[in-house]
Amino acid sequence: MIQTRNLSLYYAKNPILTDIDLSFRSSGVTSIIGPNGAGKSSLLSLVCRLQAPTSGDVTLNGESIHKLDNLQLAKKLAILRQENHIVSRLSVADLVCFGRFPYHQGRPAKEDLEQIDWAISLLELNEFKNRYISELSGGQRQRAFIAMVLAQQTDYLFLDEPLNNLDMKHSVNVMKTLRKAADEMQKSVVLVMHDINFAASYSDEIIAMKAGQIVHQKSPEDLMHDDILSDIYDMPLKVENVQGKRMCLYYL
């Protein structure tokens, strides 16, 4: 289980995150929602040791992640950030192969190749396998990165706005894939989502953030209420019941 304790992040004197105490479940899908600037991406960076906190600690099964061996950690948790700018000319297969790097350290074995093929098929990228990622569309590139992080086969998966650039069909497919990974492979998938409805439809738990703090940590049924959502997003919102599922229609 990953836990944070009094986690805080400050840039100069500006508070980005204040005293975050959180536990991430060891399997299932968790979504983190909130308005812009709530600190969601920063939280992910801190939990995945990409950044050091100003104060506080993140522990994996009781041990601080900054004390654990980096390589072993890479087999336990993986993160896909929002911005991924790569200068090298890599093909999709190359990129996904890099996802296996913690295991093969540059010399892929049979098992690695199998995992790579599995991830590529799962994200329907077989026909783009040997194309350079710079030649793909935004959505195809996003799926390549998701395949890469899936191939890393970690217990915990942190994805920052994974549905960016994806069309409706692929958005649904990615959410279904992640749900399957959580259910069948006992992974814990943590997603930062800007679409509350996707979050509610596929998550076991939703964490709501606002201004650098956790304001709610509830199941979708408990969270999807007018007053709670309106408070989080600072705008009047209504939750409707659509085909047995709770949906928030915020477009008008």
């Binding site: 960076s45 995945c48 040791r49 990409l50 980096n70 390589l71 072993q72 950690l73 890479a74 087999k75 993986a78 993160i79 950030r81 991924n84 700018h85 790569i86 200068v87 090298s88 890099f98 996802g99 790097f101 913690p102 350290q105 540059g106 010399r107 890393q152």
Partner: peptide, 20 residues
Amino acid sequence: HHYFDVLALGKPMATNLGVN
């Protein structure tokens, strides 16, 4: 030389893949 390839992916990606 394998590590240089990973480093070329950028700091966040490299850290994610377990490279110090």
